[in-house]
Simulated assay, not measured.
Amino acid sequence: MPPRFPDSFLPSVLFMAESGSSVDQIAKELGCCTKTVKRIKHNFKLWQSHQSPPEGRLGRPSKINDAMLVDLLEHLLRHPLADLEDMRSFIYDQFGVIVSASNISRTLKKNSWTKKKIRKNAAERSQALRDDWLLQLSDWTAEQLMFVDESAANEKTGDRKDGWAPVGVTPDESVPAFRSERYSVLLCYTVDGYIACNILRGSFKSDNYAMIIQVVRERSIPGRIQLCVPIIVGLNAFGYLRGEIPTVRE
């Protein structure tokens, strides 16, 4: 980077130029090149400044104006799965303008819009039912609640999935290729610990689920009913119960 001229350099160039000095004389006197003197004189003549004004963005303007952009972003809020071709069709249907996919991509990036993984929500989910459940839950105490849940494991459940290796190298480990047996655990647990448990090979069926519910009723509820009304909560029980046990809250 060339050295900066002192603050008195510019006034000296303009003063000597107005006095009729030639470009070579000014350059020799001030110790600069003739190209610098010519540029300063040219800019001062056109812009009344030693620097030219900043140039605007070059090239033709974008086909996507502000109105199109607002409608496009609102469309994406309603339909986040739309791809670039869908956006092109939307702009053409709404405004009759043909735009390229790259133009749309640049415009979205300029406005801080990116493509992300979709967070899927169940269409059957009801906010009213969720609020009603939370309202009921607020009336219960921790001692009333008894949770029935299922879990499963095999010999490979505790195997580590990550390993260390240099950058660009995948760590390898030799493991048996056979599939081990799966064991399922169905238990009922409370704030004081679990009170019933059933372990079997394979997966549970509705009969096993109903049996442990009956065991919980016979063993734990008579002792707890003196203190409070017990509430049995079946986690992920819809596939097992199918309405067969109406007193169990799913």
Rank of each mutant, 00 (worst) to 15 (best):
K115I: 05
R160D: 05
L134A: 12
N111P: 00
V175T: 08
D71G: 05
I64E: 00
L58Q: 12
P53E: 00
S102G: 12
Q51V: 06
S126P: 07
G239I: 10
P61F: 05
I91F: 02
G31N: 12
T170Q: 13
E143D: 12
D159G: 06
S112R: 08
V216N: 01
Q127G: 08
D207M: 05
H79N: 13
I64S: 04
I104R: 01
P230L: 11
I40S: 00
F238E: 08
F178T: 13
S21M: 14
F90L: 15
F204L: 14
K109I: 04
K28R: 10
K110S: 12
P222N: 02
E85W: 06
D172T: 14
E18P: 01
D24R: 15
I118C: 01
M211E: 12
P230C: 08
L14P: 04
N111G: 00
V216Y: 02
M68Q: 10
K156Q: 14
A177R: 12
E150K: 12
N154A: 11
N111T: 10
G20D: 10
I91G: 00
E155F: 12
Q25W: 03
D192I: 13
A82V: 02
A122F: 09
V37N: 03
E250A: 07
T34Q: 13
V185I: 15
V175E: 09
E155T: 15
P53F: 00
E55Y: 03
L108T: 05
S21D: 06
P2A: 11
M1P: 04
T36D: 06
L72M: 13
K116G: 01
W133K: 04
I245A: 01
E181P: 04
F44P: 00
T114H: 09
F9I: 09
E181W: 06
N121I: 04
D93W: 02
T107P: 00
E143H: 12
A152I: 06
K117S: 05
I232K: 04
A123R: 04
Q51R: 14
R130Y: 04
V169A: 06
